Computed example of a mutant assay.
Amino acid sequence: MSAQDPAIAQDAPAPAPDHLRVLIVGSGPAGYTAAVYAARAMLKPRLVQGMQPGGQLTITTEVENWPGDASVQGPDLMVRMEAHARAMGAEIVTDTVTRLDLSARPFLAECDSGARMTADAVILATGAQARWLGLPSEQMFQGFGVSACATCDGFFYRGKQVIVVGGGNTAVEEALFLTNFASKVTLVHRRASLRAERIMQDRLFAHPKIDVIWNAEVVEITGDQSPLGVTGAVLRSTTDGTTSTIAADGVFVAIGHTPASELVRDQLDLREGGYVWVHPGSTRTSVPGVFAAGDLTDDVYRQAVTSAGMGCMAALDAEHYLSALDAARA
């Protein structure tokens, strides 16, 4: 039989998975920073970028709160961070981890491309995605008047009118924060009462810059095409279905975030909302050798700089774990 015989090819064993010291799942500030630190520690990390290389900053336009840059485009910052990680020696792969087995050691990862790899330590940096309203007009104006992060983009609305959509703590906090910049903040909530804590509600109702529109939902975001920008929103009453339009220069959607924890949902301890639990003051998860950083575990700050800091912590935690593992094996 020839080497090309189909029967032989079919019976050929699958190649052994690559073995790594450190596997980083996900990119963005947390993943790329972890890659920089792990590479500098000579751990030869491999970073699998995921479905959105660079994370949420790739859909952010201007960033003015990244230390050292008075202003930088989000996608440009991610390109620079990726280049930095590569320059330090990290291997970066354009692929998506579809299965992660943390039940045995070394840990096993399988990718969308068919690639398989094992690792002594895993750093999870898969992030979280803002929940959106699901409107075509919302998608059109994302980054051009529609945002899900007041602390990221509020500065651009000095002296302008903005809308905040939501009724929980996040929405109230964002509305109050935006009063530092905007001339008027309108909170739109689809019910007749807020879910936010009472003390937060009291601050909201007492603020002279904030109006609340009850029993209403945003059904369309209006705007200009050239240049691209928001001019207002169409609201529909949840009680009688009537519609109205209000003017605004920006719309902030604050209806929560969804952490990308599907890979580990039944394998790691999670907190409320699906965020990965970590030991206080560290990035160590409930499984030794597995670390989590960035928005995957952070439902409070959700900033690029805090994610990067956690990525640094995760790499250092992984380095310490692997050193102890090597010592135990010796």
Rank of each mutant, 00 (worst) to 15 (best):
P13W: 14
A14T: 11
A16H: 05
V25A: 04
A30I: 05
G31C: 09
A34R: 05
A35S: 10
L43N: 06
K44D: 15
K44S: 15
P45H: 07
V48W: 00
G50P: 05
Q52Y: 12
G54H: 06
E62H: 14
D69E: 14
S71H: 14
V72D: 08
G89S: 14
V93C: 06
V93M: 09
T96E: 15
T98P: 12
R99D: 12
S103Q: 14
A104Y: 08
D112S: 13
T118Y: 06
D120F: 03
D120I: 05
I123A: 03
A125C: 14
L135T: 10
Q139R: 13
S147E: 02
G154A: 00
F156K: 00
F156E: 00
K160D: 00
E173K: 08
L178K: 01
K184A: 15
V185N: 04
V185E: 06
T186I: 14
I199E: 14
P208G: 04
K209C: 00
I210N: 01
A216V: 01
V218H: 03
T231M: 04
R236M: 11
D240I: 05
T243N: 09
G250L: 06
V251L: 11
V251K: 02
V253D: 01
V264W: 01
L270E: 09
L270R: 10
G281M: 03
S282C: 08
R284A: 14
S286W: 05
V290A: 06
A292G: 08
A293I: 01
A304K: 11
V305M: 15
D317A: 12
A318M: 06
L322E: 09
